Amino acid sequence: MSRERDERHALMDLGHEHPQVAVRARNLSPIVPRASIAGRALIAVVAIMTFLASITTGAVLLVAASAAEWQSDVASEITVQVRPLAGRDIERDATAVAEVLRAQPGIVGVRPFSKAESAKLLEPWLGSGLSLDDLPVPRVIVARIAPGAVLDLAGLRGRTSQAAPTASVDDHRAWIERMRSMTGAIVFAGVGVLLLVIIATIISVSFATRGAMAANRPIVEVLHFVGAGDRYIANRFQRHFLRLGLEGGLIGGVAAMLLFGFSESIAGWFSGTPVGDQFGALLGTFSLRPSGYVALAAQAVLIAAITAWASRRTLFATLNDID
C-alpha cells in the first residue's frame, strides 16, 4: 500500500510539472509556425511586390484616362491655318475661311485667333517680347465638331481653298495616332512590369515554401508516419502562405491606395513648376477613379492567390522528394 501511494504521488507530481493538454487544444496548434522570421520576410516581400504592382497599374490607368481625354478633345476639333501670301489680305482670307466653317454642317463653334493670340502660341519656342510683325505668322482658326457628327473633310478642304488659297485643314489624325501608340506602349510596359512582379513573387514564395518545409521536415515525416496524406499536409501549409500573402497584399495595396489618394494634394504642391506642369499634362489630376481602386484591391487579392498557388505547387514537389 505504501509503495502504491508513493507511485500515485509521483504521477501527480509529474502531472503537475507537465500538465495534460486537452485534445481539442492540441488540434488547434498549427503545423506551420505562424510567427517566424521567414514568415515576416515573406510578408514584406509580398507587400513590396504588391505595392510596385499597384503603382504600375495605377500609373497605367492614369495615363490611359488622360490619353482618352486628349483623344476626345483633339478629335472634337479641327484646326485651319491661313498662311500669308503676297498680294492677299490675310485678315480677309481668315474671315472668309471662318464663314465657310460656320456654314459647314456638323460644326457648332468657330473661333478665329487674332494676330496677338497667334503670336502668343509661338512664345514657348521664340520667347516673349519678340516682334513678329516681319514674320509670316499664320492665322489659326479652331472649329468644334458636334458630338457624333461626321464631316466631309474633302469637300471642306475644297471650299476653304477657294476662300483662301493658303488655307490648310488639319483633323489632328496624326496626333491621335501618336497618342494611341504612346498609350499602347505604356500599357504594354505596365503589363511587362506586372509579369515581372508576378514572376518574382512566385520565386520568392517557392524559396520560402522550401525553407518552411525544410524547417518542419521532422513534423512532416511524423505526419506521414501516422498516416497523413500529402493533400492534408499541403492544405495546412497552403493556408499558412495564403494568410501571409493576404497580409502582404493588404499592406502593399493599402499603401498604394493611400499614395494615390494623397497624390492630388502632392501634385498641388508642385503646381506652377515645370516638373508639375509636365506631370499634370501627362497624368491629369493624379486622382484615380473608383474603378481604379477596385482594380488595385482585386490585384492585391490576385497576388495573394498567386502566393497560395505557388506554395501549393512547391509543396507537392517537396513532399514527393521527402517521400
Rank of each mutant, 00 (worst) to 15 (best):
L242Y: 10
G129S: 07
A208G: 03
V220Y: 02
P290H: 07
A35D: 11
V108F: 11
V169A: 02
D133Q: 12
L156D: 00
L61G: 00
G227C: 08
P138Q: 02
T307I: 06
T166G: 04
L156I: 05
V63E: 08
I203P: 01
V137F: 08
G245L: 03
E77N: 09
L28M: 14
A185L: 15
M12K: 13
T56F: 08
E264N: 11
S206I: 05
G158L: 15
S161P: 02
Q104E: 13
G15V: 13
I303W: 02
A308E: 02
V197I: 12
A200E: 02
I233E: 01
S206T: 09
I303K: 00
P218G: 05
I219E: 03
I198K: 07
P218I: 11
A208P: 00
A38C: 09
P165W: 10
L244E: 00
D133W: 11
E221W: 10
G229E: 05
A41S: 11
A163R: 04
R236V: 06
L130I: 15
R139I: 01
V60Y: 06
R144N: 03
V32I: 15
R40H: 13
D6L: 15
G284R: 04
L288V: 03
R26M: 15
A174K: 10
R24Q: 14
G155C: 10
L315F: 10
